[in-house]
Amino acid sequence: MQKLFSMFPAGAPGTGLLFLRLAMGLQMLVYSGCCEASRMPGWLATVMLVWTGLICLAVVTPALAVLWILFACVLMFMGNLALIPAATSILSALALALLGPGAYSVDARLFGRRVIVLPDGLYSE
């Protein structure tokens, strides 16, 4: 999993990634129909709510963002999502998939940088 992320930036870049995740979560809520009358089946709305929570907390972020890109494309081609909102959602998810979750995420806690300490005598010169 570590290979999916180049690093977990903190500070302003990490905060920006947190805001990007929250914006993606809001887009997912709106497009899933949770904020308006939905034609979506109940089980799919529940899956979308769980998916939104995971993306906001940043659990396996790149994989969930790529799945969202595919889902938004399906919604767009089925005619349930207009071109401009779909493009905005797809570009946001693509940015999130490429940049990773940031330091303020569950992924950073699970897969963050590690310090490897070698025992003495193992590395003799």
Score class of each variant (00 low, 15 high):
L4G: 12
S6E: 12
F8D: 07
P9R: 06
A10G: 11
A10D: 11
A12H: 12
A12M: 11
P13F: 07
G14K: 06
G14F: 07
L17A: 08
A23I: 12
Q27I: 15
C35P: 02
C35R: 10
E36D: 11
A37C: 10
A37P: 07
S38Y: 08
R39M: 13
R39G: 14
M40E: 12
G42P: 01
G42S: 09
T46Q: 10
V47C: 11
V47N: 07
L49M: 13
W51H: 14
W51Y: 12
T52I: 03
G53S: 03
L54Q: 06
L54Y: 02
I55G: 03
C56E: 08
L57A: 15
L57K: 03
L57R: 02
L57P: 01
T61Q: 02
P62N: 04
A63C: 08
A65K: 00
V66T: 02
L67F: 10
L67R: 00
I69M: 12
L70F: 08
L70T: 04
L70N: 00
F71H: 13
F71I: 06
C73W: 06
V74Q: 03
M76N: 07
G79R: 01
G79D: 02
G79K: 02
N80A: 10
L81A: 00
A82F: 01
A86W: 03
S89V: 05
I90K: 04
L91E: 05
L94C: 09
A95S: 07
L96Y: 00
G100H: 01
P101Y: 01
P101V: 00
G102M: 02
S105G: 06
A108N: 04
A108D: 05
G112T: 03
R113G: 13
V117I: 13
L118D: 08
G121W: 07
L122S: 10
Y123C: 14
S124D: 14
S124E: 15
E125K: 14
